[in-house]
Amino acid sequence: MRKPAADSTAISLQQRNGKTAWQLALIVVGMFGFGFALVPLYDLLCEVTGLGGRTGGAYAYDPATVQPDKSRLIQVNFTTNTNAGMPWEFWAEKGGVRVHPGELRQMNFFVRNTTDRRMIGQAVPSVVPPSAAQYFHKTECFCFEQQVLEPGELLEMPMRFIIAKELPKNVQTLSLSYELFDVTNFAARVSVAGSEGSE
C-alpha cells in the first residue's frame, strides 16, 4: 500500500486526481453529445452549402419577383426508382424538360400500389451535379410528405420547381432522381433530417 509522505499532500493528490477525472469525464460527455449534434449539424451544413445533393424544403415562390433568364436553357432530367422491397410502379410523365432559370415548371409523376394491401411510400430526391443542388427549388413536391395508397390505387403527383438564376454558369444539365421507399412499417415521425420538407 502506498505510504503517504504527509497526510495533507496525500489527500490533496487523491482529490486532485478525482477532480481531473471529473473534468475529463465532462469532455467525454461533451464529445458524446457532439457526436449526436453532428446529425443536425450535418444537415445544416448540407442545406447551407448545398453540398450533398440536398435540395431543401418547400420553396416560397413569389411570381412577381422572379423573371426567367431567357439566355440560358437548362436540361433537367428525371429518374425514378423504387428501392429494394418496394414493389410500387413509379414513373415520370417525361424523362426530361428544358427550362430557363427563374421559370416555374411542373412535372407530373405517377405511383401505383401494385399490392393487395394499403401501403405508405416516401420519395427521396437527390440532385446532381452537387454544385447545382442548392439552386434547385421545389415549390410543390410529393417528396415533402409520405404517400398513402390503397391497394391498386394510382396517384398522379405534380412537382413544381424553379431553378435559381444564380445556378453556376458551367452547369448545363441537371439530374433529379427520386428513390421511392416503403415506409409502411416505420413509426410515425417527423423526418429526422430536420426540415419538414426535405428528403
Binding site: 421507399f181 416503403d182 416505420f186 429526422v192 433530417a193
Partner: peptide
C-alpha cells in the same frame, strides 16, 4: 425505428461515413 442512416426515413448513409 429511427432513420439516422436510412434514406427511407430521411436519413443519410453518407452521414454514417462522415461520423
Amino acid at each position: 425505428g429511427t432513420s439516422f442512416f436510412n434514406a427511407a426515413g430521411g436519413g443519410d448513409p453518407v452521414m454514417f461515413q462522415h461520423i
